[in-house]
Write a protein that binds this DNA or RNA. Structure first.
Length: 909
RNA sequence: GGGCGGUUAGCUCAGCUGGUCAGAGCGCCUCGUUUACACCGAGGAAGUCACUGGUUCGAGUCCAGUACCGCCUACCA
């Protein structure tokens, strides 16, 4: 498909894999992707349309979700490009800190190595080798899907510009008091050996055990016989208890508040305190408090100024604070402590307990809350600005209902822990001097001296931690455009237009981009957030590698083509709603592509010999158009309107539905069939046949343009084979989006009546079990207003209904007089026909009678409903006039049909 | 515990601001080799739009409640 091909050169079979790659090469060669590429045909003064692609994690290959993203984004981009807007679709990859380490750890484990055995430096070298491989694979997949990316602007979240942006962003946050370092309780994953953000902790239901433990109250400085029973699911944390809490209004314990109890094993004396956070109805109403290992206890510890004792280390083993249990794994310690409590007689009992446990999103380890000194980003003020953006409408979230979720999350947001004890990622640009002073620097080489005491750089040490991967992702919409430099790209393309992503990362990512974007650039990073649904498998299961139900987009495209994949992903997709994906949808999409291919092949092959091969496209001669031609053009105009509406509403599923129905159900099924007859009619003037052909070319051209954003490859290939206007560009990708043309209401309604007639005749024949190949005489009564259309389309009606001879009568009475009582009756609106007037045989009569009776019953039911409505005084009084008029017309039409059908039955006996 | 969403033909789903909206694809049944297409064409069967009330002249379409299903969120250890 790389050479100019007209007509017969189009291969007979639709084989997408044969030409999709070549088409992409042509786009690249023509330099049409970049807004400032030499093949771009945009109006330089038009408002740019910009999508910065959510960068996929550089951890392996792309899945269907990525393909869907690219398809939807590329759709918007191509549409904007065809509207003549300068269009930037910027591709990228994410270093995916924790996710990448997780993947690499598994790989090197297979090589007999580990993070520890390699050490930081060699581990990072290994990582670079790894991503060098995946990178090319992933970019190749993006191309295969057909994304019209500006490859010259490809970015990576760990490249120099991004690194610079990260340092600068953090420095500014620090300077503005929005980044701070403190010791706080963080979510620690013992498997990953790092802290993770609240979002990365997944609550999972589990059946645990609730143990009831007796603590002895002190009596004169020593434990007495008096006890208080607490309930706990984590007995090992007894070692870190620094209080027992009860509800202040709980009469059972009122007298005990203020007294001391002795914690077993560690033999520590701690107070009984009163706090409203305690649920009186749960357990015993008394709860042990371990501030250093539980979020709620931590909060309570802060309120009551309790000691915070860390009893578990980085690997979740008991520390020296744990006395005799030091060195034991947390679960081993739990077992031993339970046994020991029992031995001491202080275990009152236990019972199974349904609970929710926080697990690591990556490793599934049970998250251990621990005290750590780390960096945090103050979220509340940033969230306030993000909320203001959506509330004011400066940024819109689609579908709208997600704005509620957005509101809820941002109004309850907690500070963001950005420190990670990992190696792969952006190192935190903070340096500490021996005196404990902190220096944050945006300089790539670090600070020259401690900014507090001026100690030289050589005495400073950099924070060993790296940033949460979402920190650099949060800068993506502007770091990709060169921020913090005031670049031409940043000025021209920021804020971006649409952020399209999955609803599952609304908080992880979109919220962070909004918060950081507004603070650092002073502007919302995008006008619209379009949230896609997730792709699930045909059974509705979430696709995951562990389940083994992941569909490889490359294999799908090799088999069915990128266009079919894109169409299937976009068709029936509703924003924010998960979508099932299966072989059926793909097959349907491929069949549609095949249909389009063959329709185009037909049009090309039907070119009248009076038009030269390779002729420049001409508009059809208006004076020579028949009703079918006018109908075809009007339907194309109607489609354009509907597609424009759908795209404006981001209703891409609706867009494909409209195109599918129009192209297949209208243009191919009726437009081409009607045109065929005229094109083959040697009795017509050549100019008439030419007008018909140019009409088909016109409509097809429109459909290919409208479909291009969804199915770029096939439309480009087919369009190339069609005649072009002198003003058309070389490639469809940069051709203009169809403008709105006038509809032809008269042609639309008249041809629709003829279509109904043909359907009616076919239906009658089929019900009467008449062989399709049999020609039958058809007598027809058609009202005056349809006379001209009927005459023009008579040969087509004959052929499509297999009707010969076709005789027209002026009135219903004349029809009956001529046709007699035989044959099959057809009532289509105000057109009436008798098929096969000399058709005999009781079987045919019986079958026809059954059909007519069924139609009559239907018509009568509808008529009764219509009459009832019209007899309702309130309806007449309160309904709008147009509705009442419509009901009247309907009533008349139905009444007429009932009369005719009744009459027919009466005569048929 | 709180919030949000879903419940429309056997299956997967469209149905926007209430008035031909009861639809599509697949599947199913009956026919069919008329040179664009069997990855096709013609025709057909199939749903009390989860349930119960309410608003309205009129409700899959708006409101309330109920039942399942799903997602998000949460300091009952």
């Amino acid at each position: 498909m790389t050479e100019t091909t007209i007509g017969s050169a189009l291969p007979k079979s639709y084989r997408p894999a044969d030409f999709e790659g070549a088409v992409y090469e042509r786009w690249i060669a023509a330099d049409v992707f970049a807004p400032d590429g030499k093949g771009a045909t945009a109006d330089p003064d038009a408002e740019p349309f910009v999508i910065i692609q959510p960068p996929p994690n550089i951890t392996g290959s792309l899945h269907l979700g990525h393909a869907q993203r690219t398809a939807v984004e590329d759709l918007m981009v191509r549409h904007a490009r065809m509207l003549g807007r300068p269009t930037l679709f910027l591709p990228g990859l994410d270093h995916a800190s924790i996710a990448a380490q997780f993947v690499l750890d598994r790989i090197i484990a297979g090589e007999g190595e580990s993070r520890a055995s390699l050490g930081r430096e060699r581990y990072l070298e290994r990582m670079h080798r790894f991503i060098a491989e995946t990178r090319d694979v992933m970019l190749g997949q993006q191309r295969r899907v057909g994304g019209s990316f500006d490859w010259g602007r490809l970015r990576f979240t760990m490249d120099d510009v991004s690194s610079r942006a990260v340092r600068e962003a953090f420095s500014r946050l620090y300077r503005d008091g929005l980044a701070y370092r403190t010791e706080a309780l963080v979510n620690w994953c013992p498997g990953c050996r790092t802290s993770v953000s609240d979002l990365e902790v997944l609550p999972k239901p589990e059946t645990g055990t609730l143990w009831f433990v007796r603590y002895h109250l002190l009596d004169g400085g020593a434990p007495g016989t008096e006890t208080i029973t607490v309930a706990t699911t984590r007995p090992e944390t007894i070692l870190g208890d620094t209080a027992v809490a009860v509800h202040p209004d709980d009469p059972r314990y009122a007298a005990l508040v203020g007294r001391m109890v002795r914690i077993p094993f560690v033999e520590r004396d701690v107070p009984i305190i009163a706090d409203e956070a305690v649920e009186r109805d749960f357990g015993t109403g008394a709860v042990k408090i371990t501030p250093a290992h539980d979020h709620d206890d931590y909060a309570m510890g802060r309120r009551h100024d309790l000691a915070m004792i860390t009893i578990l280390d980085d690997e979740a083993r008991v520390t020296d604070q744990g006395d005799g249990y030091a060195g034991l794994d947390r679960y081993e310690a739990r077992k031993r402590i339970v046994a020991d409590l029992e031995a001491r007689g202080d275990l009152e009992g236990s019972k199974p307990h349904e609970m929710v446990i926080g697990r690591c999103q990556r490793s599934d380890d049970v998250i251990e809350p621990r005290l750590k000194t780390q960096w945090f980003v103050r979220a509340a003020p940033l969230a306030e600005a993000a909320l203001a953006a959506t509330r004011s409408g400066r940024t819109r979230i689609l579908p709208e209902r997600f704005e509620k979720v957005w509101e809820h999350w941002l109004t309850n947001i907690r500070d963001w822990n950005v420190s990670r004890q990992l190696w792969w990622g952006h190192r935190i640009p903070a340096w500490y001097c021996p005196d404990g002073h902190v220096t944050v620097s945006a300089d790539a080489n670090g600070p020259s001296a401690c900014e507090t005491c001026r100690r030289p750089a050589t005495e400073l040490t950099q924070d060993p931690d790296i940033f949460d991967t979402w920190f650099s992702s949060g800068l993506w919409p502007f770091s990709t455009l060169g921020w913090p430099e005031d670049t031409a790209d940043l000025r021209r393309y920021y804020p971006t237009s649409v952020m399209e992503t999955g609803h599952d990362i609304l908080f992880f990512w979109v919220a962070r981009m909004m918060m950081l974007g507004i603070h650092l650039t002073g502007r919302e990073p995008f006008h619209t957030v379009y949230l896609s649904g997730l792709i699930r498998d045909a059974q509705g299961q979430r696709m995951s590698k562990t389940k083994g139900n992941v569909v490889d987009p490359l294999a799908v495209m090799e088999e069915s083509g990128a266009d079919a994949l894109r169409f299937a992903l976009i068709h029936g997709a509703t924003p924010g709603i998960d979508q099932r994906f299966g072989a059926q949808k793909l097959e349907n999409a491929r069949n549609f592509a095949n249909k389009l291919w063959n329709a185009t092949r037909y049009v090309l092959g039907a070119r009248p010999e009076t038009i030269a091969d390779g002729a420049t496209r001409q508009p059809p001669d208006r004076s020579r158009l028949g009703p079918a031609e006018r109908w075809i053009l009007s339907r194309a105009a109607a489609t354009t309107e509907a597609v424009d509406r759908a795209v404006a509403d981001y209703a891409f599923g609706e867009m494909t539905r409209v195109l599918y129905d129009e192209i297949w159900g209208e243009f191919c099924d009726w437009g081409l069939e009607l045109a065929k007859v005229r094109l083959a009619d040697a009795s017509l003037a050549a100019a008439d046949r030419e007008a018909t052909w140019w009409t088909l070319v016109d409509a097809l051209d429109t459909y290919l343009r409208l479909l291009h954003p969804v199915m770029p490859f096939i439309t480009e290939a087919l369009w190339e084979a069609l005649p072009h206007r002198e003003t058309d560009p070389e490639l469809l990708i940069v051709a203009r989006w169809p403008g709105i043309l006038d509809r032809d209401a008269e042609a639309e309604s008249e041809v629709a009546a003829i279509v109904d007639l043909v359907r009616g005749i076919r239906n009658a024949r089929s019900e009467a079990k008449i062989e399709p190949a049999t020609w039958l005489p058809v007598d027809i009564a058609i009202p005056q207003r349809l006379g001209a259309t009927f005459s023009a389309l008579r040969p087509a009606i004959e052929r499509l209904a297999h009707a010969r001879p076709l005789t027209r009568h002026l009135t219903s009475e004349a029809l009956r007089a001529a046709a007699g009582d035989g044959g099959l009756a057809v009532i289509a609106g105000d057109v009436e026909a008798v098929v096969g007037r000399d058709l005999g045989g009781r079987d045919v009569d019986r079958l026809d009678r059954a059909r007519v009776e069924k139609e009559l019953a239907e018509a009568q039911a509808f008529l009764a409903a219509a009459r009832e409505r019209l007899s309702n005084a309130s309806f007449l009084a309160k309904a709008p006039e147009a509705v009442v008029a419509g009901a009247r017309a309907r009533e008349a039409e139905l009444s007429d049909a009932v009369d005719r059908l009744t009459d027919r039955l009466a005569r048929e006996t």
